[in-house]
Amino acid sequence: MQAAATAALEAVTDVVDLDPDRELTERFRAGDRAAFDQLVRRHQQGVWQIVRRYVKRDADAADVTQLVFVRAFKGLGAFRGASSIRSWLYRIAINCSLSWIRDHRREETAEIDDDAISEAPAAPGRLAAGEDGVQLRAAIAKLPPKQKLVLELRVFDDLSFKEVAELADCSENTAKVNFHYAVKKLREILGGSHGRP
């Protein structure tokens, strides 16, 4: 019995040891700066995608992504490993993005208005090219913030409900229910014009 338990524990330990993020974190803590560069390469795309969903200009999204990793660099030494490195980074990404939006709210609104005016003639053509995508995105934008967050983290970032729950500050089951409501609402929104279930 004890041997089985020990074997199970060793298996779990092996899994933890095999986590490249953990290993890179340990190397970074030991003074290996190259380990941080590897962490950046592993997660830069995921972080950028999260940031880009909040920040609507590519250049700004790159700036915020850089800020995310700078903060991660400063905080990685104190990271206690309660969550995965990925969800920790995504949490920083969400916080940085929200902070950026708060600081640039006025500019963002003005730019959106300008874009709406300047790009108005091209809009029908774009809709024709990717009408489904445009409608889907519009439907997502109408979701309540928590449902939107849970849906995007689950679908676009491919996180487990446990990780989604960590990032959304709720229980795993609540995350599942929010996700359910988000999908249901999308289907309702798209039902009439979309013609799909």
Partner: peptide, 30 residues
């Protein structure tokens, strides 16, 4: 599941940055 498949088929928003340039900026910043 059908809705999730539709959502996952969406192309990512925006144009991805030059990853090497971004890595260099991050390395420089830290």
């Amino acid at each position: 599941r059908a809705m999730i498949d539709q959502l996952r088929a969406l192309p990512p928003e925006g144009n991805e940055p030059d990853w090497r340039a971004l890595q260099a900026r991050i390395a420089d910043a830290v």
